[in-house]
Every structure is written in structure tokens, then in C-alpha cells.
Design a protein around this nucleic acid. Sequence first.
RNA 1: GUCCCCGUAGACCAAUCGGCAGAGUCGAUGGACUCAAAAUCCAUUCAGUGUGGGUUCGAAUCCCACCGGGGACACCA
Length: 929
Amino acid sequence: MSETENPFRYTAALAGEIELRWQRYWAENGTFHAPNPVGELADPTHPRAGAPKLHVQDMFPYPSGAGLHVGHPLGYIGTDSYTRYQRMAGFNVLHPMGFDAFGLPAEQYAVQTGTHPAVTTAANVERYRQQLRRLGLAYDERRSFSTTDPEYYRWTQWIFLQVFNSWFDPEAGKARPIDELIAEYESGARGPEWASMSPAQRRKVIDDHRLAYVSEAPVNWCPGLGTVLANEEVTPDGRSERGNFPVFQRSLKQWMMRITAYGDRLVDDLDSLDWPEPVKLMQRNWIGRSRGAHVDFPIGDEHIRVFTTRPDTLFGATYMVLAPEHELVARIVPGAWPAGTHEKWTGGAATPAEAVAAYRAAAAAKTEEERTADGKVKTGVFTGAYAVNPVNGAEVPVFVADYVLAGYGTGAIMAVPAHDERDFAFATVFELPVIRTVEAPEGFEGAWVGDGRAINSGFLNGLAKDEAKAAMIAWLEEHGKGAGATTYRLRDWLFSRQRYWGEPFPIVYDETGLPVALPESMLPVELPDVDDFSPRTFDPDDADSEPETPLSRKKDWVQVELDLGDGPKTYTRETNTMPQWAGSCWYELRYLDPHNDKALVDPANEAYWMGPRSERDPGGVDLYVGGVEHAVLHLLYARFWHKVLFDLGHVSSFEPFRKLFNQGYIQAYAFRDARGVIVPAEEVVERDGKWYYGDQQVTREYGKMGKSLKNVVTPDEMCEQYGADTFRVYEMAMGPLDVSRPWETRAVVGSQRFLQRVWRLVVDEETGAVRPMDGELDPKTRKVLHRVIAGVREDMDELRFNTAIAKLIELTNTLTPLPSVSREAIEPLVLMLSPFAPHLAEELWSRLGHEGTLAYADFPKADPAQLVADSITYPVQVNGKVRGRVEVAPDTPEADVRAQALAAVAEALAGREPKKVIVVKGRLVSVVV
RNA sequence: GUCCCCGUAGACCAAUCGGCAGAGUCGAUGGACUCAAAAUCCAUUCAGUGUGGGUUCGAAUCCCACCGGGGACACCA
């Protein structure tokens, strides 16, 4: 075996020994502790105390029972490499890691295994910690926590109380303490009714203003999961994102958070963030802000209020549509069809009432999916009623149609077929008139939605689109027929879940049935131990089932005697729990001051790590790395909470994450045999471009790594076979961090060979001795060294780890064949390698005679003098083809380069006179004849 | 259907402002070492940039159309 020949070769076994040793060293010496400005974690003696800060974070994991596969740590290794580099470059680096351990999956896993979620969660977290430690990730372990720690969720509950105890002041555009609202009512500033109200009535009025409130409203009930879900957790086809169960609309009493109040700021502040455009776009789409107007169309003694983004086209409104669920529908239907009703409008029914009833029943029976199915022909039915267009008094027929959604705007529209494609399609089916009110290009057919001058529009005629909108809104407001308005697609956040494994609400109910906030002194409200933590499960299709909270079964916990200031009384506890998102809504703040029991974070620590750098700067985490799947859910909720905390003065940053980076995924091949059964990918071999499992041919597919696809590769295996450093280098070298790519175990050896070559530069494989380092570095190699240093720094700053590693390999390959080794090149190489292969680098650094860790050594700097080339070779093109080359000194004047170039291609020119000669400095010369 | 991103050697990926298509890795092939093999080392191989146009002295890079892959949105008035 090789061990006997080269006993000191850098093998997986040796790597493992080195890695465990340095991991122990780092832990024992607290190498990666980052000092805070104030408090328990302050340390003025720390080498980076008072240095410029850098706060880098990964989206923390949910610790699943399956443990990590090689795809999971990709982002973690990326941020680890980046922060190790920046620490050496002089920054005080905060790079923490925690665990998102509450929530449905933890509970489901516990139910499956029959163990208490607290037990399985703790075990899973421990397993994750060990796996991450084995990879040498440089976290400040003092700042690690799980969202399930009572000391952590105490502050999650505290934030809930902040939200509960505040209201959104539309004048100020921000949240204010609820006491200030109560004071306004008590002063009479909000009308005289207050004085005559009972205490319970007053509480109801106040409760209706809170940012966290209880409401009875249609919500997403998912019997398969036994809980209600937020809109964000329901897929467009009406199923649960987790588990893919059917979701039904049920009117239920639930906790909501008034995220809609922040709709404008959540949209506007996206502009201040350094985030990938697709994520910003998804948030904008989700919030769905549209500006336009509300317009009232009189109908009998009532009116239909519509929302439109095109008030400028009001003169072209030739009919109206109500959503089938619209409450006005039943009231406006007359007893008989008006004389002369178009036969296509009646749906074949004898009376409007029958027609409408049949249509509503049909609409109700359809799923969301069927209603919005692609390419669907517009359907609808005439209500028999006419409303009046408020601008011109024209009578317009009112239809019911399911292309108008009850949940958006007012659930009613004015239809302008000339300038809206949906209305046009409907008008075509029902043969409704089309009146053009915006000038369209010559010969245009269909619905013109572009710009143009207003026509057929009375006082708007001649105005451009935007002018016409403004003019119409002004007219509507002046005549009391409508008003400018903004609507949002965003709905308030449904915040309660009927599950066990979540944060309990710090809320009790008194005899009025109204919620009472517990005082801060009673936090945390600990999740009680129960015998039966599993949710009440239902037939996934049973829409009529009723949610039941596991905590409600624990009667002795639910009934509680408390003294909340007016003597001991019996209260009933809230038995819902918070959604999984609660814990991850603010964890970036807790890392800053993890053990503070006076505040969720000391303001000085928050200002240092996350505060704005300038007036317009949003503040927040300097780099936040995670998958794009959280584009809406987590990132929207976290922004919302952060803004509430900002408004109430608890944080100085108004956004939690200044820069966001979406890492790609490591994917894998999976193989199926002839029966379509997945076979273990590990045992499949390739022959002549085909794949075989044993001797049977199998087909290959590409996708996720997962147990069911039998293609999981774990970091543990990689550490065993190659060592953690090789694994880290491979993951970083295989491509840019934001690109998804296939895992290929057999290619990992390339990274191992690289590290072996570096090792060999320093250590004699036969004797284990450090090689002599007295070699002189020749000038040419020195230039390579400095070019690599400059390039690596640039790449590291831009998170281009793959090209940085390529440059390190290039340097290594330059040094390997040299007859003697030089410290001048070896030491910078070791330092530059350390962000990727920290254990190996530490080991070599110490063998090179240095004391302690290199984590705070200066990252090499290039000498600018060494970056200047001795000479430049210009390729000379004639009519686009390279016909010659000239080598000149770097400072050769352009005219000389030109002359030499022309001389070099004289033969190719064959006496022809150049029409044009282009000299691109430092690049090439192009001659045109 | 609309919008966005991406197509470069057999595979993964480089290529700064439009300037010689190749930094790096795997694989394959050959060689060194070995009794032999593994490991290691050395060397070689391979694309003209998805397709077709256009702009330009010059295009992987810019523009247009199409093909293929991925993503977002999809009756939001």
C-alpha cells in the first residue's frame, strides 16, 4: 500500500487526523469568536475589536431527520470561505448559524417515529451540529441557538406582543404604540362615541386597530394537515405547499397580522436592496400594488363600487361584471328579463333569478384550478339589471361572470372591451358594444392597452393616458362619484396554526372572550408537555371538518389563574401556536446579542452589526445566502417584522437583509430500470454512453438528491473518503455559487490531487520533514505569484470561488516542477488556500514555523510593480485574421506599435495600402485593407 | 400565453470595455514509476461558442428571429 511507500502522503486518513485536530484547536481557543461593541460578548483585546464589521449569514436549516446531503452545505461552505477571507482581509466578521426547529416537518417526523418533537428535534440539531463542525465551518458557536429554545422563543413572543400592542397610523405611515391610539380616543379626538361605550366595546374598537388581531374571515383550511394556512403557503392550484393537500376556504376565527398596512413600504423599499432582480420581482408581484380609482355606478337606490386602473377609459365602459360571490348580486336581480334581452345573455333560463342561481352554483362547484384554467372561454350570465355610467349617464348591463374574482379589488368591475383583453373576449362572446376611448394605431383590431390620446371621452378628449387618468380621478372626486385608490393583492398574514410544535401565543382570554396580552414578565409562555402532540387529522378532502388545536386538549394548562393587575382571575389560554415562519422572522437580530435577557438585542450591538451606513442605506445583514424558494414567504415576513421593530424604535435598520444571494443547487442523476424502479445510483456504471445496473441497462434522469431517488451522497462519506478540505475545495471549484450543477463523486479526486500537490510542496512524503525553503523565487514565477494574488482577491470579493481556486491550482502547478521551494511563494499560497482548505492550511502554516492560527494572518497583497508585464505581444490582424505578432515593451508608444505591426504583416499586405489601422492598447492591432 | 435567465471541448466550467476561444477540474489516450496493479507524476487529445440573420475593422459578448433548457407570472380589473 501507499502508506508504506509514502507514509506522509496527504491521504484521507491524514486529512482526517489534521482536520479533527484543528477543529478541536479552534473550539478550544474560541478562534472564531466575534467581539461585540458592548455586553457579555464584548472583548477589547480581540484582534478585530473595533475593526470594520461584516455580517454574513446563511438561511438557517430546518434540521431534518435525514441529516445533510452534499447539496445542503454548498452555501455554508461558500459563506465560510468568504468570511474566512474577509477576516484575514481585516474585517470583524460575524458568521453565525442556528436552527429553525419548530414547525410542521419536525412535528410530522415526531409523529412518524412516535417520539416527542422536543426529543427528535434536539437529536437532529445535535447531528447537524456535528456534521457542520466536521466540515470546519467557522461559526461563532456562542451565538448558536434553536428557535425552539425557550430563551429564544421568549423573544419571539415578546415581538408578538410588540405587534399586538401597536397599530398602524396611516398619517405617519408607520406603527405606533397602541397606548397612543387609546389616548387619542380618550381625548375625544376620534369622535364622541368613545365616551358612551362600555369597556368591552372600547376594547373591540382598539383590537380592530392592532397589527395582530383576531378575525372571523374566510381562510385556507387544510384538513390533510389539520391546520389553516397563510395565502403564501397555498399553491396557485389551491393545494398546500407542504404535503400537496387540498385547501378549502372556510370562515374561521384566526389570528392575523396586518402586513397589508406595510404594502407600500414593502414594495418601495425593495429599491434600496441589493437583491437578485427575480426575487424583487416575485415580491412585487405578490404584493401586487395597483394604482387607480374606485368608481361608483348607481343602480336603483344602491351603487356598485368598482376598482379600475384605467379611469381614463370610463367613457368606454359598456357593461359591468360582478363576481359570482358578490353580495349585491342577489339584490339587483329583477323578476323578469327586460324586454328585448339578448338570448345569449340569459343562459337559457326563464328568469334572471334562475339564470344567476344556476351560474353561481356552477361557479361554486368549480375548483380554483378549473376557474382559471388556461385558454378558457369566458362565461357569464346577465343579471337582468342595468347600472348607470356615472360620467355619461349611459345604462350599462350588469353581468355575473367568474372571470371577476371576489377576493380582489371590490369584486366588481366596469368592463371596457375596447381597452382590456379580458373584457374584449367577454364582449365578443356576448355581443356587447365596443367603444374606443383611446386612439389606437391605424388598423388595430382588438383591445388596445397601450398609450394614446383620449377620444369619445367628453372632457378628456385629446389628453394622453396619464393626464386623462389624473383628470378623471379629479372629476370623480369633485362630483362625489369616486376617488383615487390603490389596491393590493397582498392579504393579511394568517398567523395561527392548529398544531402542537410551535410557539404558544402570549395571550389569554378573559370573561368577555376578548384577548388579553400577558405582561413581559410572564414570558416565555412555555410550550407544555402533552401526551398527545399529534394533530387531529382529517380526510384531506373533508372540507367541513373543524380544526382542533392539540393544546386545547390540555385542560389544566388552558384554564389558568393569573393576576394581571386586577387581582387573581381565571383566564383561558390561546391554544393556537405560531407558524414556522415566526422564529425565522427575526433570528438575524438574535445572533447579534444571543444571551441578552434585557432586550432582544442591545441597540449598540444592532447598530454596529446591522445599522445603516448612510442616510438612505437600509442597513441589515451584509450578505444573506440561501435558496430562491424563500423569495416570498420567509423574506416577506422577515421584512415585515423588521419594519415594525424599526417603527417602534427597537432597531436602527429598516430592512433585515441588505444584500441577498441565491445559491444554486447541487443536483444528481438518478437511474431507473426497465420496470421504472429506481436503482442505487452508486452502483450504476457507464459503458459506451449507456448506463448499467449489474448487467441490465438503466435510464438516467436528472434532478434532486433524495432518499427516494437512491442517489444521496453525504458529506460524511466525502470526509471519510477524501477529507473535509477536499470536499470543500471540490464544492467551491465545481462552478459559480449561484449556478446549479450535477454532483459527480468521481471528479472529487481532482481537488484531492491539488491539495496533495500543495502538501508535497511543503512536506516530504517519505520522511514527513518540512522541505527546505531557502530557494530563491525566480522573477518570472514571482510575477505569476503576484498576478494570482491580485486575481484571487478580486475573485473572492465577487464570490467567484471557482475561478479563485483555478488560479491557486495554476500557481501550484507553476511551483511544482521548480527545483527548489521558496517560502516567498509557499506562504502566500497557504494563506490564500486557507479559506477553502482551512485545516490543511493551518497545518502547513504551523509546519512552516508559525505559532497558533492563521485565521487572523494578513491575506496576501499583490505588489503592483510585479503586475506590470515585461513585454506585450500584439497579435496583428489583417481583415480580421491573425497574420503576425509583434512583441514590444509595455510603454511603447502607439505609433511605434503600429509601425512594427505593419512591418510584421508586410508580406500579408503584399503592397496593398491599409485603409485603416486600429491599435487596441495592450490587446491587438487590426489592419483593414 | 406574457416576462426573465441560460445554451462554449465527451462532462463540469473560464474568457475584464466587443479584441488571439481556454484558466482550472473530470474523463479518454499515451508515457514514466512498478514483476504487476493501484496510487502518483508527465504529456497529448478534443469545441469555433444552440441555429439563422444583422451591426462592426473585429462578436461567445451587442441587436433581431427561431430552437432547446430553467424560472416567474398567468383572468389581479
